[in-house]
Amino acid sequence: MAKLSRRKIAELWAEELLKGRDITGNIAAYLVTERRVDETDLIVRDTESALAARGVVVADLTSANGLSSESRAAIEKFLIVSMNAKKVAFREATDPSVIAGVRVETAGQQLDATLRTRLNQLKASKI
């Protein structure tokens, strides 16, 4: 069997997800069988890029205490407009070290509006 490229795997995975079929287990089994587990992070990133090209943005949100539904809706609206997306899917995480604010990461882009980052920038400017 010919080795599938990372991008081909990502394109296939994105297409199946958009059809409502989750083939994550199949992808994982293929990577284990082909001894390509070390490529997992790259394939996930490529899949997120393939989804973004089809109008579906996957965004990682990190905040200190979780986000309100209003904040999530505002971030979704911002991403739809700024990335010309049709749909946004969120993965949320809490990290008390960010203190306040939010970090939004999508395929290839990051918006860091956390208090931790602002404090570090202020410290670095030595005002």
Rank of each mutant, 00 (worst) to 15 (best):
I9D: 08
I9H: 01
I9M: 06
I9E: 10
I9T: 09
A10K: 04
E11P: 02
E11N: 07
E11S: 06
E11D: 15
W13A: 00
W13P: 00
W13Q: 00
W13Y: 03
A14S: 02
E15I: 07
E15Q: 04
E16A: 01
E16Q: 03
E16V: 00
E16W: 05
L17T: 13
L17C: 02
L17I: 15
L18Q: 14
L18H: 11
L18N: 10
L18R: 12
L18M: 13
L18T: 07
K19W: 04
K19H: 09
K19Q: 12
K19A: 09
K19N: 10
K19M: 06
G20Y: 13
G20S: 12
G20M: 09
R21H: 10
D22R: 04
I23D: 04
I23E: 05
I23V: 07
T24C: 01
T24H: 06
G25P: 02
G25L: 06
G25Y: 08
G25T: 09
N26L: 02
N26F: 04
N26V: 05
I27Q: 04
I27D: 09
I27T: 05
I27R: 04
A28V: 13
A28L: 07
A28P: 00
A29S: 04
A29Y: 07
A29P: 03
Y30S: 01
Y30G: 01
L31I: 09
L31T: 11
L31H: 12
L31C: 06
L31E: 11
V32E: 13
V32K: 09
V32H: 11
V32T: 12
T33K: 06
T33H: 09
T33D: 09
T33R: 05
E34G: 07
E34N: 10
E34T: 14
E34S: 07
E34F: 11
E34K: 09
E34I: 14
R35Y: 13
R35P: 02
R35N: 12
R36L: 12
R36N: 10
R36G: 04
R36H: 14
R36M: 13
V37E: 15
V37L: 15
V37G: 07
V37Q: 14
V37N: 12
D38M: 14
E39S: 10
T40Y: 14
T40K: 10
T40R: 09
T40S: 08
D41C: 08
D41T: 11
I43S: 01
I43F: 10
I43P: 03
V44R: 00
V44H: 05
V44A: 02
V44T: 08
R45Q: 03
R45E: 08
R45H: 03
R45N: 04
R45P: 02
D46G: 08
D46E: 15
D46A: 13
D46I: 13
D46N: 11
D46Y: 15
T47K: 03
T47D: 06
T47F: 09
T47N: 00
T47C: 02
T47G: 01
T47R: 00
E48W: 08
S49H: 11
S49A: 10
S49C: 08
A50G: 02
A50C: 03
A50L: 04
A50N: 10
A50R: 08
L51Q: 01
L51A: 02
L51T: 10
L51R: 00
A52D: 10
A52H: 03
A52G: 02
A53H: 15
A53S: 15
A53E: 15
A53D: 15
R54P: 04
R54K: 13
R54D: 13
G55P: 07
G55L: 15
V56E: 13
V56S: 10
V56M: 11
